[in-house]
Amino acid sequence: MQKSLREQRTVLSLVSSKTLSHFETVFRGCLLRQCHSLEGLKLQLAQNQKVVVLAEFDYCTSRHVKAFMSLKGRMRLIVIAKSIDVSVYQKYARHPDLLLIPKSDILQAFFLTSKFFDGDPVYMRSAVRQETSAPALVKSTNWVSQDSIRQRKGRFMDFAKQGARLYLPERMFGLKEFVSVLYQLENQEWVTVECQLRWEVATPDGGQIMGVQFLAIA
């Protein structure tokens, strides 16, 4: 059996220790080196053939990505940024050696990077997220029986055109599970959105943060 990419790679980090902490598990088995400058990065690239470069920006543009991708050596690039210009998605969304992680998605670092390392396609979402703390009711979807339906009150953390991020005080739902999310609009009208869980993580207080993809609105 071949070794996984993460076991074969050297990781060159240009990020803060706080950001790096989100990748500790997925980088287990890699040789991790902290670079403190671009010159130090170039030196490490010259010494290592297979590397993953971890870079962090407040605002990432296509010019930033182009500069890194043009560096000599066989490398894959993971970018973490507070804001990512739409031109980056337009030019590089399907690039096999690039992973874009908005800071708002940092809790998904393990899930996204694992898929990236394993060669699976990673969906890079460019839709703008809007922060909100509106209450919501999340219910399991059971097309056969109403007896085993689970539900829990929680709240939105943010939402975009195609999905949302929610918090529940209890970990109840699993990956790829179908759920109904009920919430109230400003005009007091109640809306039900059929969704599927695309990712989820446990929180220190025993709760759950989950990302859902919108499927249909009722």
Rank of each mutant, 00 (worst) to 15 (best):
K115T: 08
Q151C: 09
R9V: 12
F110Q: 14
D205A: 14
V138P: 06
Q162P: 05
Q90A: 10
R165C: 09
T141P: 00
S126W: 15
L98R: 04
M157F: 11
D120E: 15
S140D: 07
Q108N: 07
G73S: 00
D120C: 09
R165I: 01
S37Y: 13
R76V: 00
F27E: 07
V11D: 01
S114P: 03
T141Y: 14
A202E: 15
D158S: 09
G163C: 02
G211H: 02
Q184K: 10
G163F: 02
R165D: 02
A218M: 11
R155C: 07
V212D: 04
R28P: 04
E39Q: 07
S83L: 13
K42N: 01
S70F: 06
L185D: 01
Y167P: 11
L31V: 14
S104T: 15
F68P: 09
I84M: 06
Q44P: 01
Q44R: 07
D118M: 10
I78N: 03
L54N: 07
E189M: 09
E56C: 12
F156R: 02
V88G: 06
C35H: 06
H22D: 08
L5C: 04
N187E: 12
E56R: 09
L182S: 00
Y123S: 11
F159Y: 12
P204F: 05
V52A: 08
F116R: 05
T113V: 11
K3D: 09
C30G: 13
A93C: 08
S180G: 00
G73M: 04
L54M: 14
T19P: 03
L45Y: 01
E189C: 07
V51P: 00
A46E: 02
M124V: 09
K72T: 05
K103Q: 13
L99Q: 02
L166G: 00
S17Q: 10
I209D: 06
T61F: 05
A136E: 03
S13C: 04
V128R: 15
V51I: 00
